[in-house]
């Protein structure tokens, strides 16, 4: 069954159209990745799912319910969690507070076991619980951002460029963690990435976004094998 589906979604920033008639499906238990160049609309698509900005046309259905017009904060309480682009952790609050925020807002009261799970997934965070978020390294901050999203016990996790500005080794750690989560808990993940190679290897399926339109779709392996993908996103790196 589809956990999330977008049908003919168009999004505008003022008069500028950022998404054109985008349709996309994410099935329960899948890792789906969305790749594309800078400014293709990947982050916009992810933010549109969260209702900020709102889709001007088309429908977004999550878990059988139309959430196109639901206010952002209510969407985020339906077990959708997001690790936003650029991490956006709370710099002056401690790591523990950052994590607690994630659970609290989703309405969970029994926070200790959730905290334990996240710390098991990212042991580095356990060492840093009392430290200020802003003092963490880039990789640790990304782990914190994902951890904070996981504290909401989401069914659907939205990840916006988790590899941004991180060393390859750290990227691998984070992608391994995502795979583990998906295998062990059946968590559904929608992953926006510029790092196409790694993302397609991790994902079950992928979509390619060019200038606000989806131009290709397929399994990760299929897309990896396509010559035009290799030319546009994979050559000259990785």
């Amino acid at each position: 069954m589809n956990l999330l589906s977008l049908r003919g979604v168009s999004t505008f920033y003022g008069a500028i159209q950022a998404l054109r008639d985008v349709s996309l499906e994410v099935e329960e238990g899948e890792i789906v990745t969305l790749i594309g160049a800078n400014g293709a609309g990947k982050s916009t698509l992810m933010m549109t799912v969260c209702g900020n900005p709102r889709a001007r046309s088309g429908t977004i259905v999550y878990d059988g319910r139309d959430i196109t017009q639901v206010p952002t904060h209510l969407i985020m309480r339906q077990r959708i969690a997001q690790a936003p682009e650029g991490r956006r952790i709370f710099g002056r609050m401690t790591v523990r507070e950052n994590l607690v925020m994630g659970a609290e807002v989703a309405g969970h009261t029994d926070i200790a076991p959730l905290l334990d799970q996240v710390c098991d997934l990212f042991p580095r965070l356990r060492e840093r619980l009392t430290q200020r978020g802003g003092t963490l390294s880039g990789g640790e901050q990304q782990m914190l951002a994902i951890g904070r999203a996981l504290m909401a016990k989401p069914r659907l996790l939205l990840l916006d460029e988790p590899s941004l500005g991180l060393a390859p080794l750290v990227v691998r750690q984070i992608f391994t963690a995502i795979r583990t989560l998906n295998r062990e808990t059946g968590l559904t993940v929608l992953l926006v990435e510029q790092n196409a190679h790694q993302a397609l290897r991790l994902a079950h399926r992928g979509y390619v976004l060019v200038n606000g339109t989806i131009t290709m779709a397929g399994t990760g392996a299929e897309l990896l094998a396509r010559p035009e993908i290799r030319a546009a996103y994979l050559e000259g790196g990785h």
Partner: peptide
């Protein structure tokens, strides 16, 4: 939670939204 939400708001409004804070 309200007080922590205030402080989170001071730190980063966009992050607050994406967490589901009103």
């Amino acid at each position: 939670p309200l007080g922590r939400a205030w402080e989170a708001l001071r730190e980063d409004e966009i992050a607050c939204r994406s967490l589901g804070i009103n």
